[in-house]
């Protein structure tokens, strides 16, 4: 075959055109352009927020589609073509350096997002996201409006739930420290309340707990557990001061079950997220032990009812009358 200019030119253009037809025009014509059940129009604020999302390249680290293999995310829904109807440009993303945002709406209340955008490490100590304080208050508000709309109608329901519980949480906080704790306790299911931490607060457990605390909790609750972390000024209600729990133990002797439940499930309406996707059971118990031992000054770990000890646990020492494990941290048998 002799490669003449005409052959090279015509051949290239024909192949290119055929390809465009096959992989662009045919999908264009054959795909169903129907909205999904969750789809809705974006509001003016949300569209303005989307422009900020585009301008600042959020799409380079945050994907916007849940894949079939994304079981790590614990999402309730795989993304569908109808979720993206009319959006231009698409923002599906190609890299997931940060979390996927397809269902971000209503995951957190607005104030969490404000703190997070001012400095991502305020709420997420290990984040490597840049600070977006430079956007200014109004633009941060618009960006958050967009984030809270991600997930369409599903997101709207979650946002509404956040708002309802926020009103109650703020009212409880305003009623005073002890009323606040009482409200928090009352919203933990009955079975979880008179429940001690089943694992002993040994030194290794406390060290593991300290690591979890630093990686997940310190930005809001602060290094001494007084709720004065760097994120605190942005949050309403502010993060809990753990020391207020000392005088509000359940039946005067339990706190482990409450800590576990609140860490696992979060407190919707407040900036306290749920951690059940990120922390395995043992890590939640460890950080509960850490908080109890260091900030509450009381831990109920390994008291009755404790069931059969897990095989790795050190032998129990006798429980002193004070209700504290005097040797916690050592884990030695008597």
């Amino acid at each position: 075959m002799r490669m003449t200019p005409a052959l090279v030119l015509v051949g290239s253009v024909v192949i290119f055109t055929a390809s465009v037809f096959a992989v662009i025009v045919v999908p264009w014509q054959t795909m169903a352009h129907q909205p999904s059940a969750a789809w809705r129009e974006l509001s003016a604020d949300e569209l303005a927020g989307r422009k900020l999302y585009i301008a600042n390249g959020c799409t380079y680290c945050h994907s916007q589609f849940v894949r079939t293999q994304d079981w790590d995310l614990g999402m309730e829904r795989i993304s569908q073509p109808g979720d993206y109807l009319g959006l231009s440009p698409h923002l599906l993303g190609t890299t997931r350096t940060g979390p996927d945002l397809a269902q971000q709406g209503g995951e957190h209340p607005d104030d969490w997002h404000v703190a997070h955008l001012v400095s991502p490490r305020f709420t997420r100590p290990q984040s490597l996201m840049p600070r977006f304080e430079f956007l200014g208050q109004e633009n941060i508000r618009l960006l958050i409006a967009y984030l809270q709309g991600m997930g369409g109608r599903d997101a709207d329901q979650r946002v509404q739930r956040q708002q309802e519980w926020k009103a109650r949480a703020v009212a409880a906080y305003n009623a005073g420290a002890d009323e606040n704790v009482k409200w928090l306790h009352d919203n933990v299911p009955e079975g979880w309340r008179p429940l001690p931490t089943p694992y002993p607060a040994t030194e290794p457990s406390l060290q593991r707990g300290a690591k979890v605390y630093q990686d997940f909790c310190i930005g809001c609750h602060g290094p001494v557990g007084d709720g004065q972390g760097p994120a605190a000024p942005y949050l309403n209600p502010p993060p809990l001061n753990f020391t207020t729990l000392r005088r509000n133990l359940v039946d005067g002797k339990y706190i482990g079950g409450i800590l576990y439940y609140q860490i696992m499930n979060g407190i919707t309406g407040t900036a306290m997220p749920y951690f059940k996707h990120e922390l395995e059971s043992a890590k939640i118990w460890d950080v509960s032990n850490f908080i109890a031992a260091n900030f509450i000054g009381f831990d109920d770990s390994n008291t009755e009812p404790a069931g059969i000890d897990a095989s790795y646990e050190p032998l129990r020492t006798q429980k002193p009358a004070s209700g504290r494990w005097r040797d916690h941290g050592k884990g030695d048998a008597p």
């Binding site: 290239s12 992989v23 999908p27 264009w28 352009h33 009319g86 959006l87 231009s88 440009p89 599906l92």
Partner: peptide, 28 residues
Amino acid sequence: AVTAALYPLGNAMWNPSTGAVTGVLDAI
């Protein structure tokens, strides 16, 4: 030759304000 055709198509240059089409098709 191919880039001269590909570039305007890929950048959806008939939509100057977005440079994109809509929805999942835009990703394609």
